[in-house]
């Protein structure tokens, strides 16, 4: 009964949203003059922001527009987003901390996986480095590079070559925090002399963005691996369940 109701509600929402979107661009002829005037205005606005990005690209310190938006025009989003990643790690650690400690089960890798890891990991580190470097002028950047780095970490973990990361020691914590800390220090540092937060001087923008991206790559890789490694391992035998 409720199931059908929920299905109908979701279907209704989908229908109305789809209908509203379908009506958006091509209905100029059907509506009144006012509506078509508005339509024109909306179209002009849509052209607006990409044009604005293109016009300021040469002051951003990078040549790839997505990287410019991500690390300069809307860098504040990205700063807080790294905060979200860190919070996921902190949340995981808090959960594992609250739980009773459990024995560690070392994982043994087969010969094939070991050989694969031997080949793949250095390659993945290289790819990550390339993606990071490429991000300044073409698709790629810290996130993709960090994800590839994390992939290498996951492989290492699966082959049993990565030591248990929990609880994280000082240097691991430093690595997790590096990207956020560098970003924050630069964000606050450029305010000296009455500038706004994150207002990089135009000449140094490229260098600062590169510094941020490099440290972000390392931190994102470590954070993503920690999220993978931080999971509780399955218990060997079912203990007494409690509610």
């Amino acid at each position: 009964m409720t199931r059908t109701l929920i299905a109908l509600l979701c279907l209704g929402l989908a229908g109305m949203l789809g209908w509203a979107l379908w009506q958006l661009p091509g209905d100029v002829g059907l509506k009144s003059d006012l509506q078509s005037e508005l339509q024109g205005q909306v179209q002009a606005d849509i052209v607006g922001l990409p044009a604005l990005v293109a016009a300021h690209l040469d002051q951003s310190g990078v040549r790839h527009p997505v990287t410019a938006v991500l690390l300069n025009f809307r860098a504040y989003d990205t700063l807080l987003e790294i905060g979200v990643l860190l919070l996921a790690v902190l949340g995981v650690l808090a959960v594992r901390h609250a739980a009773a400690p459990e024995p560690v089960h070392p994982q043994r890798a087969g010969a094939v996986l070991a050989a694969l890891v031997h080949l793949a990991v250095p390659l993945m580190v290289l790819v990550a480095g390339y993606l990071l470097w490429a991000g300044a002028h073409q698709p790629g950047g810290a996130f993709q590079a960090g994800a590839v780095l994390a992939g290498a970490g996951v492989l290492l973990r699966l082959s049993g070559r990565l030591p248990a990361l929990l609880p994280p020691g000082f240097w691991l914590r430093a690595g997790l925090l590096l990207g956020f800390a560098v970003f924050l220090v630069i964000a606050l540092g450029v305010t000296r002399g009455g500038h706004e937060l994150l207002a990089y001087p135009v000449q140094q923008a490229g260098g600062l963005i590169l510094a941020i991206e490099a440290s972000l790559t390392l931190s994102i890789g470590l954070i993503l691996v920690s999220l993978f490694v931080g999971a509780p391992s399955p218990p060997e035998h079912g203990g007494e369940a409690s509610e």
Partner: peptide
Amino acid sequence: PVPHALVLT
């Protein structure tokens, strides 16, 4: 490019 950056976030 703006929504590309937003979606990446």
